[in-house]
């Protein structure tokens, strides 16, 4: 799971976190996070974003409030989380137990030419989450910490924010469906049953 430079590989990490995910719903921020969850396995309980940069965590909050018994995981990148960093305060105040956020921090904007993000210059998103009032957080840098990360996400004792320092590798694209109506409809049906489209 570790690359030559000592950082975690993103897809084995995401695969380990999602193993035995059951009925967990997963929102993925645009770009590499969306390709990652799709590479692990595209399912109706995946909601990969094609845009809405900065909104992934808040989509997770709306879903977590609506479905309090279901584990909801937001997987997103450092650039996307930085854009929506205020939502950490909003989420901390709402304190949904079933919401977890996993930030895959490669310290770069991966889809636009690997420009550096602020997290490569000392900005600590996990400290920002704690400062926002997120009481349950975890830094992940080593493979032996991943089982604990998975357990914390599945425990539904959130809101939980984890940040994994990952290798800034560019991986083959594994694209989910692009049609937004299909993405929303399939997730609603998986959560609410086939009658969801008759709402």
């Amino acid at each position: 799971m570790l690359s030559a430079n000592g950082k975690l590989h993103r897809r084995p990490l995401v695969g380990a976190v999602l193993e035995g995910r059951g009925d967990m719903a997963v929102i993925a921020g645009l770009g590499a996070s969306a390709w990652d969850i799709t590479a692990i396995g595209d399912t109706a309980l995946n909601f990969p974003l094609w845009g809405a940069m900065g909104g992934a965590a808040m989509i997770g909050l709306g879903l977590a409030i609506a479905q309090p018994e279901r584990a909801v995981l937001v997987i997103t990148g450092d650039g996307e989380m930085l854009m929506g960093v205020g939502s950490l305060a909003t989420i901390a105040v709402q304190a949904p137990k079933n919401l977890s956020i996993l930030v895959l921090d490669n310290e770069h904007y991966g889809e636009t030419g690997m420009q550096e993000t602020a997290t490569g210059h000392g900005v600590d998103l996990l400290a920002m989450a704690r400062g926002a009032g997120i009481k349950h957080s975890m830094l992940v840098t080593r493979p032996d910490e991943v089982p604990g990360l998975r357990a914390a996400i599945h425990a539904r004792s959130g809101p939980f924010v984890a940040l994994a320092k990952i290798d800034p590798e560019t991986l083959p694209l594994v694209l989910p469906p692009r049609e937004g109506v299909i993405l929303q409809s399939r997730t609603r049906a998986a959560i609410l049953g086939p009658a969801a489209d008759l709402e």
Partner: peptide, 26 residues
Amino acid sequence: MRVVTLTTEEEGVAMMAGAWLGGQRS
């Protein structure tokens, strides 16, 4: 009703998308 005070309004747009995924009106 669950009242969610936002830090910026666009958070509310994203939240409405999540609420609908989970079957709630917002």
